[in-house]
Design a binder for these strands. Structure first.
Lengths: 340, 340
DNA sequence: TTGTAGGCGTTATCAG
DNA sequence: CTGATAACGCCTACAA
């Protein structure tokens, strides 16, 4: 075990102090931005020395002693989903402005992976956590919160968990979209979603949809189709197409992943969209324009930004009451939902 | 300034040592996996104590003293590009297996942001760096490397920079695809790309394309269209469509971003694909299936995994010569490139 | 306005 | 096989 990674000796606060002819404390004050307690002359000398030596304070050491690691953990359910990516990008931009970095984790909607990650993040002493949770690690989240870790929930809420939440108004959006389809003249409408169990967003959307359908007297008892994977989509769509309920049909997809599956499935059946069936979907992926699909666009980037800003606000000591921020959803009407 | 974040006192190695009736050193050995120098009995006792106390070693403290921060920096040019996301996911999976975490940065192809980020990562004492570089911070990269920071380049190479590189065989893929289009009977073929300047991937693809066109006697002097933004795409496509060179036309897009722009632009001109023009593109985004586009699929997930594994290998002290890994590209033929 | 001393949680060194 | 002790680079009292 000889010197494997013999880093060119790092420039430390001690080097700067020595070179500038002051004490470490003074340099430390400079770093922490405690400007007003430094003589102008001293300030200048330190600034120059830092420049000259190309000194970079170690966030590691700062974190060990002080309060900040300058690390924010981001736990995402599915990092390949453009929805998550947009949030990530918003969070990233906001962090960068404040000198924080993002520790990104991808749980694949797997609660045990999520658990592992939260623990790892903890061991890195993250200053805050932004999480799109599976909803199966609530006890752990409570514990972290009790440990005074600021947490912001994005997209999905957690029952009885008092924290900042940044999401969209799912109920309203689902209701509006459903009523829109009904006004368009569709009579047999189904909502296709991934399993709703434990995921607030999915539950809210599905429930609001079901209520709207009910209110319009269009319920069939087979209105919400829960699917998990292509095979189940296949079966669900087949049954839907075969159902004998009269009138124009429409399918409402709960997110972009499902939307894509539905489109491809319909195509494999040789069904013409929108000739034979209307389509509407949550999320507004880049390909919606290509496929001319009516979608519900969420301000994903803004979700990331606002979540991060809530967090940073707390990190800076401004304690405000927890807030549930519901950003607006905007329908982008395209060719897939004509009046029938 | 009272106790803002008065963390419930963290369980430390000292607590474990005390509870287990051994010294900190011994516990440290346990943590570091130095198993063979522990009595079986001691081992068991420590394991139990750690369980009981729910102890989590602080990676921060470990990093400060020892060699590892267990942090790997990932610098991406564009995090919203599904291509990048897939790499990220591969890297993430590989890291998680080895107990490392990813510090993710998004440069938006902006060299000065890239510079900032590299410096920030350095201050977090990252153990390694995976970078999809803008190509404008080579000096800095050289410096980091001289500091013995293991670096793996993904997607894009850097001239005269000796390091591991994981990418695909761009030249071969571009050549093969171009020849495929020629065999299909297209006579006027243009390659649409984002600015190639400094980006090896783009340069290689464009060059190989130009050579293949040249070899086939199909060059017009207007074969590679460099575009930056929708406005330029608009102009380039218009000129291309108006060009009087006889024979079937085809457009070859340099990546998914350009591909999308091209498709939408053609649509706005009312051009039928593939009736009036053939289309082929690098990358294989999820919507290629919907739009029935022939594409060149890259093993993006694998790029992420292999890049990370190269890095981890070095972190574990296995010094191997640097390698340029060129993963294979696979053409996915769909309806957009019929024989004409 | 500046400095001194001690400690954050861990690992490396050197002894037993 | 196990332990004392001194770092790592910085921050926070407390003093001056």
């Amino acid at each position: 075990m000889n010197e494997k990674r013999a880093q060119a000796k790092r420039v430390t606060i001690t080097d700067v102090a020595k070179a500038a002819g002051v004490s470490k404390t003074t340099v430390s004050r400079f770093i922490s931005g405690d400007v007003k307690s430094l003589a102008e002359d001293t300030y200048k000398r330190i600034a120059e020395t830092i420049q000259a030596l190309n000194y970079q304070p170690s966030k590691l050491a700062r974190g060990l002693k002080g309060r900040h690691s300058f690390l924010i953990g981001v736990v995402l359910a599915d990092i390949t989903n453009p929805y998550s990516t947009a949030i990530l990008r918003g969070a990233e931009d906001a962090c960068h402005k404040h000198g924080y970095n993002l520790l990104v984790c991808n749980t694949d909607n797997d609660p045990s992976k999520e658990r592992d990650y939260i623990l790892m993040l903890q061991s890195h002493q993250i200053d805050g956590l932004i999480i799109n949770t599976t909803g199966q690690n609530n006890a752990l989240l409570h514990a972290m919160k009790a440990d005074h870790l600021p947490i912001v929930l994005v997209d999905r809420e957690v029952l009885n968990f008092d924290a900042d939440v940044v999401t969209v108004n799912n109920r309203q959006a689902a209701k509006d979209a459903t009523e829109f389809l009904i006004r368009r003249g569709y009579k047999r409408i189904a909502y296709v979603t991934q399993p709703v169990q434990g995921v607030s967003t999915r539950t809210e959307r599905a429930t609001a949809f079901a209520q709207a359908i009910q209110a319009a007297g269009l319920a069939t008892g087979q209105d919400v189709l829960e699917v998990d994977g292509d095979a189940q989509v296949h079966l669900a769509i087949r049954d839907f197409l075969e159902s004998s309920t009269p009138g124009p049909k429409a399918l409402f997809a709960g997110n972009a992943v499902v939307l894509l599956q539905v489109i491809l499935e319909l195509r494999s059946h040789g069904i013409d969209v929108p000739g034979e069936i209307g389509i509407l979907g949550f999320d507004n992926p880049e390909w919606a324009e290509i496929a001319r699909l009516t979608t519900l666009a969420q301000p994903t980037y803004q979700i990331g930004v606002q979540a991060t800003e809530r967090l940073l606000m707390r990190l800076e000591g401004k304690d405000q009451p927890y807030q549930h921020i519901h950003l607006p959803v905007k329908m982008v009407e395209r060719a897939s939902t004509p009046a029938v």
